[in-house]
Design a protein around this nucleic acid. Structure first.
Length: 583
RNA sequence: GCCACUGUAGCUCAGCGGUAGAGCAACGGUUUUGUAAACCGUCGGUCGUGGGUUCGAUUCCCACCGGUGGCUCCA
């Protein structure tokens, strides 16, 4: 392998960017070694928005260090040193990196007899390659932040210091990216959650637990109502199950073996151990097992907005996106082998229909197939994987395959959606389970009069309501479409004498179930408009003398459009139509 | 959990070895207002908790509890 960068300018943009980021990582390591000659350097790959490099250093880095490192890097870039690459044999590499334990470990693991060696100036690195021709070609970069990272991501290993850098081809693109990040910061659901009074967490009384305030709860109710209606129409039966269950249930399900670290510790009830549920499945299975089931009763589709509790380590908690108590929009489909294909097909279509209501840019899927260690026989796996794959293809969905990425108990499809800021999120899952039917000895009587083991599929559309709402908040930047907006209309009387007309409009809206508030504060109209804007209320109805006279309102939208004076009757129809259309 | 940073009024933040300050919000008053902030005033904090150093700690040190950004997996 050589540094095949001779045609750098002919490469496509993506490959160029990859190489620029990769080379910048080397230049960062070079700067770090200059600053700390004793530094041990580990790995430094390109990432989505730039690059990073991991180091073991004599002391913790400070933000000031980044400034200095950036300066040193700039010098190296200005020097425009050629980057050389070659293959050398392992012994030579061990010699070069004799005081670099991480490099030595990497060399040992490489299977070839030779390894890649890249250098520029005095700097040398072990590297499989993919670089710019010179250090001057790396584009616009900025050292961004310092973070801890375990060597190879394993918490049993040393904690290294990771320096992240942003890198783009041009200064403009770098600035654009930082602007996008600033936008994301403004749209952060934790910030908007507070500003719009949607939810809170009470750190003193239990981190990772969500308190839904009235406006956030309104949002949730709208989503759940839609969900329930869709499930009624989609052939599901809604159920409710307990929040705790005796240890015997979790022994049978196997959760006490393979999911204990995710469960809260037991509570004692009359000498028995009970556990808060981390999943709903064992309960739904009990409903199935409560009777002798005939094939005529299948498919059985049991759905529940089931609140589960999982222990998450303190460091990973994050607003509504990563919590310790959340509500899954869970369902379990129990069916015969013959029904498999149409059920899977139906679920995939169902997912797409429901997600379609929320204006996400695009939805893609990942199919995860059988891993090394798996339960169930391979014909079952093949059959299930085929059903999943065909369903995705019939739905004409973009997908990729993660070979061996499935859980030990079954293959699955994960759905990813892209939000308004271009970020991808995983919400929906369709997951086969060959484990629980076995463990709980589930069966139905077939038309041959014999017992048969049913297929079982877990599925969630939103995943968790908490996470989904968190994503929605960021996706819409708090400016929810009419049907979701906690307050749909702000009525703004100009002076006290217009309050009566304002209230009269309120009465009409209320009769139609439209959510509004009348801002009767002792403030000027301008300030009331500002307050409604900041609350991102879709419509503002300004009422003064003229409007009271005409039984109308002057309508302004939160986007700043002035729709002029509209009669109240007309307004109600307009609002209802917009809510109805869910646009 | 681990690494780094961080915790001052409801929010955003300043301050710093001599027991605290701004803007916004809230509350009261004056103004009765025409499309993103009228004016005046008032209230509000055992400076995250506990310990230590000191004549004296919000400030320095330690521990704990949270938060933020990362690290593995996951909704």
């Amino acid at each position: 392998m050589t540094n095949d960068a001779s045609g750098f300018s002919q490469l496509n943009e993506e490959e160029q960017l990859f190489r620029m980021r990769h080379s910048a990582a080397h230049i960062l390591a070079e700067a770090m070694l200059e600053k700390f000659p004793d530094a041990k350097y580990a790995i430094g790959p390109p990432v989505d928005d730039g690059f990073y490099y991991d180091f073991e250093l004599p002391r913790s880095l400070t933000p000031d260090d980044l400034v200095e490192l950036q300066k040193r890097m700039t010098q190296s870039v200005r020097a425009n040193l050629p980057i050389h690459g070659e293959q050398i044999d392992k012994d030579a590499a061990r010699e070069i990196f004799s005081d670099q334990p991480y490099k030595l470990e990497l060399i040992d693991e490489i299977e070839d007899s030779t390894v890649g060696h890249f250098s520029h100036g005095e700097f040398e690195d072990l590297c499989r390659g993919g670089h710019t021709e010179t250090t001057g070609q790396v584009g616009a970069f900025k050292l961004d932040r310092i973070a801890g990272a375990y060597w190879r991501g394993d918490e049993n290993n040393t904690m290294l210091q990771r320096v992240y850098g942003l890198l783009f081809s041009t200064e403009e693109e770098l600035a654009e990216y930082e602007e996008l990040r600033e936008q994301a910061r403004l749209n952060d659901h934790r910030r908007l959650g507070r500003e719009l009074d949607l939810f809170s967490t009470q750190e003193d009384y239990g981190p990772g637990l969500i308190y839904w305030h009235p406006k956030g709860a309104r949002l949730r109710v709208e989503i759940e109502d839609t969900w329930k209606q869709a499930h009624d129409e989609g052939g599901y039966d809604l159920v409710f199950t307990p929040h705790i269950g005796r240890s015997t249930l979790w022994e049978t399900s196997g959760h006490l073996d393979f999911f204990t670290e995710g469960m809260f510790s037991a509570m004692d009830v009359d000498g028995d151990d009970y556990y808060l549920k981390p999943m709903n499945c064992p309960f739904h299975i009990q409903i199935f097992k409560n009777d002798l089931r005939s094939y005529r009763e299948l498919p059985m589709r049991l759905a529940e907005l089931g609140t589960v509790y999982r222990y998450e380590r303190s460091g990973v908690l994050h607003g509504m996106l990563r919590v310790r108590g959340f509500t899954q929009d869970d369902a379990h489909i129990i069916c015969t082998p013959e029904q498999l294909d149409s059920e899977v097909d139906g679920v995939v279509r169902f997912v797409l229909d429901l997600l379609g209501l929320f204006n996400f840019e695009n939805i893609s899927a990942t199919l995860s197939t059988r891993p090394e260690k798996a339960v169930g026989d391979s014909s079952q796996w093949d059959r299930a994987e085929r059903a999943l794959r065909e369903a995705i293809e019939r739905a004409d969905l973009a997908y990729d395959v993660e070979d061996g990425g499935g859980a030990f108990y079954g293959p699955k499809i994960d759905f990813h959606l892209t939000d308004a800021l271009g970020r991808r999120w995983q919400c929906s899952t369709v997951q086969f389970d060959f484990n629980l039917p076995e463990r709980f000895d589930m069966s139905y009587v077939g038309d041959d009069g014999e017992p048969h083991r049913p297929f079982m599929v877990h599925r969630a559309l939103f995943g968790s309501i908490e996470r989904f709402v968190g994503i929605l908040i960021e996706h819409y930047g708090g400016a929810f479409p009419m049907w979701l907006a906690p307050v749909q209309v702000a009525i703004i009387p100009i002076a006290d004498r217009h309050l009566e007309h304002a209230n009269r409009i309120g009465t009409e809206l209320k009769a139609q179930g439209i959510r509004f508030n009348v801002d009767a504060a002792k403030e000027r109209m301008g300030n009331k408009i500002r307050r409604a804007q900041l609350q991102k209320i879709p419509y503002m109805l300004v009422v003064g003398d003229r409007e009271a006279e005409a039984d109308a309102a002057a309508v302004r939208t939160r986007t700043g459009d002035d729709l002029g004076e509209i009669p109240v009757r007309e307004l109600v129809d307009k609002f209802l139509a917009e809510i109805q259309s869910r646009s």
